[in-house]
Amino acid sequence: MSIEEIIKEVNSIFIDVLDNDEIVVQHETISDEIEEWDSLNHIQLVVAIEKHFKIRFTAAEIVNFNNVGEMCVAIKIKIAS
């Protein structure tokens, strides 16, 4: 799966979890740019992404992602392994 495809799927997870159809995420998107993306919702997002891609993030990973792109790169590596 390409990074673009992963971002697309991650986007629909954001829409579902944050309950906002307008959300568009890109590689550079950071949490400050999306109003609903606070630390509590972040937890829900991480769990939803883990379930969707059948992967597990580590405790360190989930606090170190600087933007959506970094998260998707991590997803890509995990699905491949």
């Binding site: 630390s39 937890i43 829900q44 769990v47 993030f57 580590t58 405790a59 989930i62 606090v63």
Partner: peptide, 15 residues
């Protein structure tokens, strides 16, 4: 979910 316990002191998992 241990990672949320470690990061945020949240014991119960989302599920």
């Amino acid at each position: 979910d241990n990672k949320f316990y470690v990061n945020s002191d949240i014991t119960f998992s989302i599920d």
